[in-house]
Design a protein around this nucleic acid. Sequence first.
DNA 1: TATTGTTATACTCTATAACTATA
DNA 2: TATAGTTATAGAGTATAACAATA
Lengths: 150, 150
Amino acid sequence: MVPTVEKLTRTDAGLASQLRVSVARLSRRLRNERDPDSTISVSGLSVLGVLFREGESTVGRLAEHERVRPPSMTRTVSCLVEDGYVVRRPHDTDGRQTVLTLSEKGEETVRVERRRRDAWLAVRLRELSPEERDVLRRAAPILEALSQKG
Amino acid sequence: MVPTVEKLTRTDAGLASQLRVSVARLSRRLRNERDPDSTISVSGLSVLGVLFREGESTVGRLAEHERVRPPSMTRTVSCLVEDGYVVRRPHDTDGRQTVLTLSEKGEETVRVERRRRDAWLAVRLRELSPEERDVLRRAAPILEALSQKG
DNA sequence: TATTGTTATACTCTATAACTATA
DNA sequence: TATAGTTATAGAGTATAACAATA
């Protein structure tokens, strides 16, 4: 199949290098599978995804999660609010904070974008052998755990 | 371990979704492991990587490879030339084209940055069980092939 | 005083449009 | 006329510094 790759991954350092390149490339491909007519930005979509998973958040927590500075997140969120994807409301007990949640439009946008990118990948997965799919099925949770370490 | 993930990946659509999220997150982590004191940009580093692998290229081919418009690549390359990472020379037979290659400094930069990011990942890999590493060892070439499809 | 978030401002990366030089 | 690359200019996203409001 791909002899040089298999040879490289025999050592841990080789595996690290190969995995890094593979993951970066696949990630780039997946990012490019966005709706070209969509007005929403990549960073905006990422924020919607976090709110979808976590239910609600604040500017500070979102900034930390996305590894961005608070003023940058303020701006991203302001655009999302202006375009109707996100709703701001005051925090119950802490007047300094603002709580952010998805609007109906925001939730629907997340679902549509996910379907779109999952579709691209699902087609490629169907072209693999059952054995290859099985390897990826077992690799997915390991990759997930890797990114949460450190 | 992570029951929800294992359940999700039983179907192909679920595997696509899970793999997409895992890959995107791991990729983000790896990108953040860059040298904070480095003056070179992420896109610049990516271009150096292509030149390292392919030996030489042109503005047009690099723009296509990085999915960027030619004027953007002209600017990225100009910075790389100005900072001494890349060398321009005229094409042998076609006077319109410019051939780009890495300088010594450019090659060394690629090696240093690779070592740095591989080091982060290699540490995480050592924390896995031998069985988990084996799964990733077999998954790496499949992920690589996936990104080259379509 | 410390924390949360915002405004003001500037820098980087990318894009489109128009131009030059060569094929 | 078409292609490769560049210049001019503008938009999007992020950063730092300074500020306001609240804890």
